[in-house]
Amino acid sequence: MANIETALKEAMTLEGAVGVALVDYTSGLTLGYLGGDGVMDMTVAAAANTDVVRSKMRALELLGLQDGIEDILITLDSQYHLIRLLRARRTGDALFLYLALYKNRANLGLARHQLRKIESELDV
């Protein structure tokens, strides 16, 4: 099992990684982040994307779908933003990994696969 630091470092080794953050979406606060330097403030990204996650959850609620979110992909002109929700390990845990990648350098399929692996090994 990996701790937060290790998981974030591992995510940053992905080809084309801009920044990564582990976010508590009950408060929007980060448990840790790496990268983003000069491109984006990862704490702002965490707070803003907390609203994205909540909106999607609300959408599922409105649709009456008894389902959970595995990940959310947002494609920009030059970046991919990948949000991966952590499966709750303890009651009250509500966390997601947020990863920004440069589109021209990243392999989306590989990044998504790796992020799944990082998430499964992460021990908060």
């Binding site: 408060s27 929007g28 606060l29 980060t30 704490t43 702002v44 965490a46 707070a47 803003a48 907390t50 609203d51 909540r54």
Partner: peptide, 10 residues
């Protein structure tokens, strides 16, 4: 209880 505290600070 549902407020995004980080967003509020920002």
């Amino acid at each position: 209880g549902m407020v995004n505290i980080a967003r509020l600070h920002l």
